[in-house]
Nucleic acid binder design. Structure first.
Length: 446
DNA sequence: AGCACA
């Protein structure tokens, strides 16, 4: 009933209303700014911002019609236009007499965000990139992704509303940093609202959903097979086809790297099934086999470019092997099949790590050592963890690493990059360090 | 730069 006549819709002079319609507002204008704008003329009793397709329109409602008239009259004759953040805004009477605030769930703050990834290549954004982006604001508990008519969407669960709000405020309307995306992927904007969810249900770790609080959650077969999904490394570069087998080459090998040392390093991310070491190009390389691609991905991302020992010694370079199952003919000091518990070891070497069991199944902690001084006998890097993924902090999750609250990068902050010195804390926390935080390109600001 | 209800 009472539909507004279409002739009245675009008349230049609307009949007065205590509701004013504002347009040409700056990006993501906030209710407080609207109140500030109207305050000199009267009492603003209601507002509605982020209206319209571009979300750059708004309404403000005064307590009294005369106050609205005062504001319109003032700016009608003022030499200075109404401005918000220095941007001229256009005012007119609304064709409605009151603001109807349909507070939807999207407006009610909660700890779960509904994220819509906009852009032609939105579905090429991997869940890992999303995790990285949102981890800048606090510990991300879970992420689920799905496709709806609205496009490619994700639900991102934080511990609390405050953390979720800080992420929403900083990221809504912004674009995912270019360097986090493969080169051929176009711009991807984030639209963020609150979800009514409080706790997401994640059954499997997969390319569609992750639970970073539960290292023991089974990995979905679909994730293991990759299903042709395009994935992106933490550095944003396109990866060669993922594999459960990693090829590690060791640079600057001042210390002999033993099979056991490699086993310890790589076991931090999951059960190592097989290792084969060999010489190539005057250096040492090794193939490390995990039971699944996921674990290998995590290990690669965490270890690439880092040194086994302090001082830049034994720097690892890791790529995916084309192998999927190594053939270990004999267990010796250069190759081993850890899936065969009692395989005789030929010419056994004294293990520098002591008498480790070779039973490896499941992410049980195998090297629960007290802190050690890094030496060739005790690689400095990977603290063994039962963590499934890089997003799983072995530390108490009730105390997620405190990131600085402002996600915007200070000038000069480098793009996401793991320097060797960060390695330890990166792995332990599972959360990017502040200096690794991505910088967010602003959405359209004008 | 021209009116919301998702």
């Amino acid at each position: 009933m009472a539909s507004v006549s279409s002739q009245q819709q675009f008349r230049y002079t609307q009949p007065p209303s205590k509701v004013l319609h504002l347009r040409n507002l700056p990006w993501e204008c906030i209710e407080e700014e609207l109140i500030e704008l109207g305050k000199p003329f009267g009492k603003v009793v209601n507002t509605k911002c982020n209206v319209g397709a571009n979300r750059n329109q708004a309404f403000i409602e005064f307590a009294d019609l005369n106050q609205a008239i005062a504001m319109i009259s003032y700016y009608a004759s003022s030499s200075e236009p109404a401005q918000v953040r220095g941007k001229t805004v256009y005012l007119q009477y609304s064709n409605r007499q009151e603001i109807v605030n349909n507070k939807t769930t999207a407006d009610v703050a909660g700890n779960v965000l509904l994220v819509t990834i906009e852009g032609a290549d939105a579905r090429l954004v991997s869940i890992d990139v999303l995790h990285l982006v949102f981890s800048a604001f606090g510990f991300v508990h879970k992420i689920t992704t799905f496709e709806k008519t609205a496009g490619f969407q994700a639900l991102v669960q934080f511990s609390d509303t405050e953390t979720a709000s800080s992420a929403k405020n900083a990221l809504d309307g912004r674009s995912i940093p270019r360097y986090l995306l493969p080169e051929h992927v176009g711009p991807c904007n984030l639209r963020i609202t609150y979800s009514a969810h409080t706790d997401l249900s994640v059954k499997f770790q997969s390319h569609r959903s992750r639970d970073y609080t539960n290292p023991y959650l089974p990995v979905a077969p679909s994730a293991i097979d990759g299903s042709g999904q395009l994935t992106v490394g933490l550095d944003g570069k396109k990866l060669e086809p993922e594999s459960n087998v990693l090829l590690a080459s060791i640079e600057n090998m001042q210390y002999a790297v033993t099979l056991d040392a490699l086993h310890m390093v790589f076991s931090a991310f999951g059960p190592v099934q097989k290792i084969a070491m060999f010489d190539k190009n005057g250096g040492v390389q090794a193939l490390i086999q995990y039971p699944d691609v996921q674990t290998a991905v995590v290990a690669k991302e965490a270890l690439e470019g880092h040194c086994i020992y302090d001082g830049g010694f034994c720097k690892l370079h890791i790529s995916y092997s084309r192998h999927t199952d190594l053939s270990i003919r004999v267990n010796n000091d250069r190759s081993r099949d850890y899936t065969i518990p009692n395989n005789p070891v030929v010419n056994p070497q004294p293990s520098v790590l002591g008498n480790q069991s070779v039973s490896v199944m499941g992410p049980t902690v195998q090297y629960n050592r007290t802190p050690f001084t890094p030496t060739p006998e005790h690689p400095v890097m990977p603290q063994p963890s039962a963590g499934w993924g890089h997003g799983v902090p072995p530390m108490p999750q009730s105390m997620p690493m405190q990131m600085h609250n402002n996600p915007y990068m200070p000038p000069g902050t480098m793009p996401f990059q793991v320097s060797p010195g960060m390695m330890q804390s990166s792995i332990q926390s599972g959360i990017p360090q502040s200096s690794m935080l991505p910088r967010y390109g602003s959405g359209q600001m004008q």
